[in-house]
Computed example of a mutant assay.
Amino acid sequence: MKIAFVSQLDSKNVQSWSGTPFFMVQGLRQAGHSVKEIGPLHPPFPRFFKLLQKAYQVLTGKCYDFSRHPLLAKTLSKQAAAQMAGEDFDAVLCPSSLVCAGLDTAVPIVTWEDATFAGMVGYYPGKWQNFANATIRHGNQIQQASLSKAALSVFSSDWAAQSALSNYKVEAKNVVVVPLGANLTEVPSEEEVRAAIHARTQVGECRLLFIGVEWHRKGGDLVVQTALALREKGINATVDVVGCQPVGAMPDCVRPHGFVSKSTTEGREKLRLLLLNSHYLFVPSIAECYGLVFAEASAFGVPSIARATGGIPTAVQNGLNGWTLGVDESAQAYAELIASQLESNETYIKTALRARKFYEERLNWRVAVASLESLLEPLVPQKC
């Protein structure tokens, strides 16, 4: 199958959207498909619109996101069409509704996103809490146009798919869920994971791993509070913080590592060792579309612990690769959960091995692309 992969972001850059466009393309190619990368796509006059956006906020106190204006979205679609001109494709795959909304093509369009615009407004912090009415109107118009144009709208979680069905006019048969895979260039072998899991039971401490670039949104304070609650129970809990610096004074059990880049050999090796040696990935985000890091932790046989919010319950399923608790649960509740899982080495080992199995069966790009293939085949006309 020849696929046009149309992305506003640079799909050759492993840093873009945590590497998701890059790994989508690689997964399709490894499955034997011919993929032409269309993009990156650039809105016109970015400096001008950035200044205009700042001026609008100063004058009104509201955020007007010019990237959500229908004319700018149409410009992106025109750029994509120009790069596709003169070639025949079997399908178009877009990881963004912004590009898909105005794209005119005779071949079936499939989107693969982690959220809808309506699902994000008022849910994520920052600008999503303060959009101008015009931005909300335009953002919803673009999302609706994308859903109407796409032959199939794929979402990474049940939360995102339900948001599409609840907030927009779209047929249920055209909305499906395919979880995203782990964005890893090197996956540890099953033997390496088994050895690491057994080694964790011998270290005499509970190593919690927090990965996130936004301390507050990712729930960093709750992680530290939980570690202290565990220590009060006599469990020697530590916290490795990756991606950001903790905010405020931290106890000695917290070890900040700062931002660790996946684009360097040193960064990948550091992340690999942290994951192999950690008992749990603990990222209790207050808002999250999906959580690629949960898939990556599962590949290392590291159970995840998180809040049951947004798309997380698709990426972290209770008893399979970790646990989620309610959004209002306390640090004490998380500490009790972790302590119960550490009561015996046998319990922990079984839990960690289930996480690895869940990765192999559900949270990798081979499985994700195979699911996408089965959905694409009925849409693509058979060639004589």
Rank of each mutant, 00 (worst) to 15 (best):
G311T: 03
D104C: 11
L28E: 01
S153V: 02
G122L: 03
A161F: 03
A164F: 06
G119V: 06
V25Y: 04
Q162E: 15
V25S: 01
Q83I: 03
H138E: 09
P313F: 03
V110N: 03
A335S: 04
E191M: 14
Q79G: 04
L228W: 05
I235G: 02
P179M: 06
A195N: 14
L320Y: 15
T347G: 11
Q341R: 10
R217W: 10
N364R: 02
P303E: 01
H42E: 13
L375H: 15
E296G: 08
S263V: 15
S340R: 09
G220Y: 00
G248W: 11
G102D: 05
M120H: 02
F294D: 03
R207H: 09
G220T: 04
A145G: 10
V293R: 03
V254K: 01
L276E: 14
Q129D: 11
L93A: 09
Y280N: 01
P378T: 09
M1G: 11
S153L: 01
A355R: 06
P284A: 09
P21N: 03
A306Y: 04
A151P: 00
W112T: 00
Y359M: 10
L72W: 01
T105E: 11
E377Q: 15
Y124F: 15
K350R: 15
C94K: 00
A82Q: 14
S34G: 13
A81V: 08
L271Q: 05
P95F: 00
S330T: 12
M120P: 00
W323P: 04
P313E: 10
T20F: 10
A182Q: 08
E266P: 12
K233P: 08
D104R: 15
L325M: 05
Q382M: 14
T135W: 04
V239K: 01
I197F: 09
S166V: 08
S163Q: 03
A55P: 06
K12C: 13
F155G: 01
G102S: 08
E329K: 14
T75M: 07
V239M: 05
D328I: 11
Y56E: 04
L103N: 03
T105R: 11
R68Y: 13
P95C: 07
E329M: 09
P44K: 01
H216E: 15
A4P: 08
S156N: 13
S278H: 08
A101F: 00
L184W: 01
G291C: 10
T324Q: 05
P43K: 02
I312T: 05
N183R: 04
W323N: 02
A195L: 12
L52A: 13
G220R: 02
T135R: 02
